[in-house]
């Protein structure tokens, strides 16, 4: 059975890497700062007791007053998994996070999809083009304020 870490446990893990990173802790996930996200992720992947080598899923949610990125990470070595969230940007304006493609190649298409449908910019993504819709498509349809 995959061990799903509670929020406190994840908080402990991340505090070992970067004590300032965690913003808030929920029951099963933590919010981390977008600025330190990249260093935290790369440590989570490489650290001995973490080794989160599989990025299960990467997605974004439009909470009307802000956008949130959700990362599900699993380690096939230790068989445990965590959920990490990032609130990106101030309010609804220009949501932006750094891309994790260099850490997990599997984020490539998923980040393009998120950019396409939710309009979150990924910094340093090698090929940030629309994935499902065409280039001239107006707006980002999965946003809650998207009408027609």
């Amino acid at each position: 059975m995959t061990k799903c870490f509670s929020g406190e446990k994840i908080c402990e893990l991340i505090d070992e890497i970067n004590p300032q990173s965690v913003v808030s802790t929920n029951s099963d996930s933590v919010h981390i700062q977008p600025e330190s996200a990249l260093s935290v992720f790369s440590e989570l992947k490489n650290k001995e007791n973490c080794q989160f080598n599989l990025l299960n899923s990467l997605t974004a949610v439009d909470y009307i007053d802000h956008f949130e990125m959700v990362y599900h990470l699993t380690s096939t070595i230790h068989n445990h998994s965590i959920v990490i969230k990032i609130i990106c940007g101030e309010g609804r304006k220009e949501p932006k996070v750094s891309s994790v493609v260099n850490i997990w190649r599997g984020a490539d298409l998923q980040e393009r999809e998120v950019w396409d449908l939710m309009g979150i910019t990924f910094e340093n993504h090698p090929n940030l083009k629309r994935l499902l819709l065409w280039e001239e498509f107006p707006g980002h349809p999965l946003r809650k304020d998207y009408l027609r």
């Binding site: 899923s57 997605t59 949610v61 190649r105 599997g106 490539d108 298409l109 998923q110």
Partner: peptide
């Protein structure tokens, strides 16, 4: 559902 995201294996398996 407020948000429903599908982690689609077919899409992600195409990465490489």
């Amino acid at each position: 559902p407020f948000r429903c995201h599908v982690r689609a294996p077919s899409l992600i398996n195409l990465t490489l």
